[in-house]
C-alpha cells in the first residue's frame, strides 16, 4: 500500500515488462499489456505461449520475478492472492475449479467471501438474481452439488461465482474450453452482456475467432512474448494470425 497516490489513467490494469518463472523456466519473458476501463481485451496464442501464466501473475498465484503490475494505478506485483481479490480482480479459472462437494448456491456465495457487504442479504440476493438471469439454468440447479454438473453448467457457475465478487476487472481463462458449440455461443453472448454492464474483461482463449469477435483489442502471445498487439478487427485481418490461429486456409 506504500505505492504513490493513484495516477489517473485510462488503464485499469497495466503489465510492464513482466517476467515470470516456473522454477527455473522463464514462462514470461517480459510482457507488457494494458486493459482500459470498460473494454474486453483478449490474449490468444498456442498452448504454452504464456496466456495462463499471465493471468497467474496478475492474480498473485505466481509472482513475477521482474517487471510491474499496476491495478487502478497501484502496484500489485507482489500482493497476495486474497489481497488482489479484495482490490477487485475476480477470476473464472481454467478448468472451472468449482468446489465439487458444495452446491451451486454455495459455490456462488463463495464468490462473495471478501466483499465488505457479504452479510447484507438483500445485496447478495440481488446479485444472485443477476447471475440467475444471465444463466437461468443455474436457478434450477441451485441445490445440486457442483461436481455433478455438466461442463457447460460448471462454466456458468465459475463465471457466476466470479461475478458474485463484484469485480472491477474480470479475468476469464479459457471459458469455452471443452464445451459443446451451443454452449460456446452462449458463453460469448454472456461475455458481451457482462461487459455491456460496464465490467472490463481480460479474456484468455484458444478459440481465437470468437475471442477477437467479442474483444476490442487483442494480444498474440508466442513463447512468453507479445508477438502482436492491435485492435481486434485488425488482428482478424492479419495474414499471420489468420493462418496460425483462425485456421483460414491459403
Amino acid at each position: 500500500m506504500s505505492a504513490a497516490a493513484a495516477v489517473p489513467s485510462d488503464n485499469i490494469l497495466e503489465l510492464e515488462n513482466v517476467q515470470t518463472f516456473y522454477g527455473s523456466i522463464e514462462a514470461l519473458k517480459g510482457i507488457s499489456i494494458e486493459v482500459k476501463h470498460g473494454e474486453v481485451v483478449t490474449l490468444i496464442g498456442a498452448n504454452g505461449a504464456g496466456k495462463s501464466t499471465t493471468l497467474r501473475s496478475i492474480n498473485g498465484l505466481n509472482h513475477p520475478r521482474r517487471g510491474r503490475i499496476r491495478f487502478q494505478g497501484r502496484d500489485i506485483t507482489h500482493a497476495s492472492p486474497h489481497d488482489i481479490v479484495e482490490r477487485g480482480i475476480a477470476q473464472s479459472p481454467e478448468g472451472r475449479r468449482l468446489f465439487p462437494r458444495m452446491t451451486v448456491l454455495e459455490n456462488l456465495i463463495m464468490g462473495t467471501f471478501q466483499r465488505k457487504d457479504r452479510n447484507n442479504k438483500k445485496a447478495v440476493n440481488e446479485d444472485l438474481d443477476r447471475v440467475y438471469s444471465l444463466f437461468p439454468r443455474l436457478s434450477e440447479r441451485k441445490q445440486q452439488k457442483a461436481g455433478t454438473l455438466s461442463g457447460g453448467e460448471q462454466q456458468m457457475v465459475a463465471i457466476g461465482r466470479a461475478l458474485m465478487a463484484h469485480p472491477k476487472l474480470l479475468l476469464l481463462d479459457e471459458p469455452s474450453m471443452g464445451l459443446a458449440p451451443i454452449f460456446v455461443d452462449r458463453i460469448f453472448e454472456i461475455i458481451r452482456e457482462i461487459n455491456s454492464q460496464g465490467t472490463p474483461i481480460l479474456l484468455v482463449e484458444q478459440n481465437a475467432l470468437m475471442a477477437l469477435d467479442v474483444a476490442s483489442r487483442g494480444y498474440v502471445l508466442e513463447t512468453g512474448r507479445v508477438a502482436l498487439a492491435d485492435d481486434a478487427k485488425k488482428l482478424k485481418e492479419n495474414e499471420d494470425v489468420k493462418k496460425t490461429y483462425l485456421g483460414v486456409a491459403d
Binding site: N59, G60, L61, P81, H82, V85, E86, A90, Q91, P93, R97, L98, F99, P100, R101, M102, E106, I109, M110, G111, F113, Q114, R161, A165
Partner: peptide
C-alpha cells in the same frame, strides 16, 4: 466456509479471496 473451500481446492479458494 474458508476451511471447506481450502480443503476442496486451495488455488480456487485463493481466487475467492480466502
Amino acid at each position: 466456509r474458508g476451511m471447506r473451500a481450502t480443503a476442496q481446492d486451495q488455488e480456487a479458494a485463493a481466487m475467492m479471496g480466502i
